[in-house]
Amino acid sequence: MSRQNTRLDVKKVNSELFTLTYGAIVSQLMKDYENVEDVNKQLDRMGYNIGVRMVEDFLARTNAGRCYDLRETADKIQYAFKMYLGITPALTNWSAAGDEFSLTFDTNPLTEFVELPDNYQNLKYSNILCGALRGSCEMVQMDVSCWFVQDQLKGDLATELRIKFNKRLEDAIPAGED
């Protein structure tokens, strides 16, 4: 076994190493897939895989309790961004029904040093974030949809990520019962 002990303290790593490693992933995907849509999908999938694990770390570390409405969840998501990426997105544009809101970023560590070529305007460069949010919400029994409404990489003033609550997920029913 190659791994011995995992210490429980939160260590930090240089954000540029992170930014450039993510950049290398995206550019590798651009080489491997012909279709930009497939790259977007793959980034979302990677994010999902990260999200389902990261939420466990988040809960274990913060001893967070269950959320009783989406506003509480939004606060937790905001805190998670602070904890994992060192940025605090603003919570904005709540829908009247309270089932949709936006995370608005003025900086995004994933896109530092990034310029999107004109012919890649369909690339959702930071799509990994959507996947991560979807994955982590799913683990706490929330089915959400997540997409970018604005992106600084495409000339918008801010980067805005929209989250919509779809439904609560229930535990699986045991086999052989209805």
Partner: peptide, 11 residues
């Protein structure tokens, strides 16, 4: 700038 190590490790 710094980010959480777990975040990097998962990525």
């Amino acid at each position: 700038g710094e980010i959480n190590m777990n975040c990097f490790a998962l990525m």
